[in-house]
Simulated scan of single mutants.
Amino acid sequence: MARHILITGAAGGLGSAISERFAAAGDRITGVDAREASLRDRVDALATAHGVAVDAITADLSDPAAGAVVDEAWERSGPVDVLVNAAGIWPATPLLEMTAPMWDHVLAINTRAPMLTTVALGRLAVAAGRPASVVNIASGAAIRARPGAAHYCTSKAALEMLTRSCAVELGAQSIRVNAVSPGFVAGSSQDVNPVTEEYAAAVSTNVLGRAGQPHDVAAAVFFLASPEAAWTTGAVLRVDGGSSAGNPALPLHWTGTTSAQSPG
């Protein structure tokens, strides 16, 4: 049976790929984004390519009423089975230039909005006696700080804890909450969150030797929302080419024979 999938940030690179993955499986899609024209083009393309029911909700997720998109999607297209919080921004702001509004705007979209949408879905699902699944899009920045991203790194670290907190409180109601933590993904929303070629080259070093692609992340999201992950909640799945495992570019720390090596 087709599920109803609500995806925020659906007009972006990751959101588009995630929408595509679910639509290809025959699921109904409601996309949410602040970019109305791009969002409409995206959901119309899904309907044409896959013959699925689609809807588009234009919304600014920095609004304190961001959770209302879940109520609207539920009312317009039926109960929401899966919520994917893929909307996010990552501006570059040197720490000594940071202001309260800059900080608050990033945290509002990247952390507060997923909390509000998860709470809204939880209330509706519990009232209807239905199970549900939430998948948040975290980031390797949650565990690795970088210059100019104090607000972004903090927002994603908080999102990982939010994922675990929501999983603990909602598990008894059959609502699973997980996260996918991507490494650097090529072409993910360059229109809104551009990066320089130098930055892309620097962060593309990983164990598997390539940058991620949006479909790599979409596959992980699809798995966590599927029955195959029915006993998985509170998890953060790192889809990063092994970059969180270590740095393969480092040289051997000692080139001579050590006491742990056989002399022969």
Results as ranks from 00 to 15, higher is better:
78 G>I: 13
181 S>C: 13
174 S>E: 14
223 F>I: 05
119 V>Y: 10
57 I>W: 00
47 A>F: 01
252 L>Y: 06
64 P>G: 09
66 A>D: 08
224 L>H: 01
135 V>D: 03
113 A>C: 04
94 P>C: 07
187 G>C: 08
100 A>V: 15
126 V>S: 11
120 A>C: 11
233 T>I: 06
98 M>C: 08
101 P>E: 14
154 T>D: 01
48 T>Q: 15
26 G>M: 06
125 A>C: 11
137 I>V: 13
251 P>V: 03
107 L>V: 13
262 S>M: 07
70 V>W: 08
27 D>P: 03
96 L>G: 08
220 A>Q: 03
20 E>M: 12
25 A>V: 00
150 A>Q: 07
239 V>H: 04
122 G>M: 04
173 Q>E: 13
4 H>W: 10
162 L>E: 03
191 D>R: 06
27 D>S: 06
75 E>Y: 07
136 N>Q: 08
256 G>H: 09
256 G>K: 10
257 T>F: 06
24 A>N: 00
85 N>R: 04
3 R>V: 07
85 N>Y: 03
259 S>I: 11
124 L>C: 07
129 G>D: 10
210 R>I: 10
248 P>S: 10
38 S>Q: 09
258 T>M: 11
162 L>I: 03
108 A>C: 08
24 A>F: 02
43 V>C: 13
235 A>Q: 08
184 F>G: 04
172 A>W: 13
23 A>P: 04
153 C>M: 01
34 A>F: 11
45 A>F: 07
206 N>S: 08
17 A>S: 15
252 L>C: 06
250 L>K: 07
163 T>Y: 12
138 A>Q: 01
4 H>P: 04
11 A>F: 05
260 A>L: 14
133 S>T: 13
